[in-house]
Computed example of a mutant assay.
Amino acid sequence: MSYKKEALGFGFLPSESQHHFLVKIPRNIMDYVIIYERFQWRDVQESEDQPIDFMSDIPKVELSKHKWKQIEDALKVEFNERLKKEQLPVGKWRIGQVPVQRLFGKEMVLLAWAIEDCDPSVIPSAIKNWLGLSQEERWWLFTMTNAATGYVSDKRGWRKAIRYALTENPIEENDKQMSLFDMAINREIDK
């Protein structure tokens, strides 16, 4: 299979857009995985990490490595299926920095926000519910949450709502989660 373009990480094409998310995965199990939203890609040697600019790179979420390990496979499978359809190389998580295409990044951060302060036992429910949402629903939820509480330390309001929506709304294995938009419409009809 020949690929049209060379992508970095998970679908990031710096020649098309500088906007991306950068996942910083530490080697030490006690350190935190940090996800940054970035608007600039710096050309560095392949062996070098992207320099983090604390004035412009926005830390969105920190996760314990334990929690990250519970979601990384679901993220990889979801994103790689879509990359294959676009005839782009698949990505993989590795120690260090992994760039993620901006729309994938929004979806990833949404899931990370849902689990950042939850009990690890509900993470499988969060993953199922996240997978039950369409891409567009994930983007919309990210946008709404990001507008109100998009920084690493903002853990109130929309961030709490996302956690409850994805971790405390379990779906059955064979059922698809009802769209959030469908639920809102049904509530209006029932009034």
Rank of each mutant, 00 (worst) to 15 (best):
W93N: 08
K76W: 00
M1G: 14
D31H: 15
K92R: 08
P170R: 07
T143A: 10
Q101V: 01
M183L: 14
Q45N: 15
M183A: 08
V44I: 14
K76I: 03
I185N: 02
K191N: 06
E116V: 09
K69M: 13
Q177N: 10
R138K: 15
G9H: 01
I115Q: 02
I127F: 01
L8F: 11
F79S: 04
W158E: 05
W93C: 01
W93P: 07
P59Q: 04
M183E: 14
D119R: 10
R94P: 02
L13A: 05
V109C: 04
D49P: 05
K128I: 00
P120T: 11
T167S: 12
W93A: 08
R82M: 04
F181R: 14
A165C: 06
V23A: 12
T145E: 00
K155I: 11
K128C: 11
N129M: 04
E137P: 00
M144Q: 14
S153V: 13
P14R: 09
G132H: 02
L13Y: 11
P99Y: 06
E6D: 07
M144E: 09
Y3G: 04
D175N: 05
N146Q: 10
T167I: 01
K92Q: 10
V109T: 06
A148M: 08
V61L: 03
V122W: 01
L8G: 11
R82P: 00
K128D: 08
I58H: 13
G96I: 09
P26V: 13
S56V: 13
K24L: 07
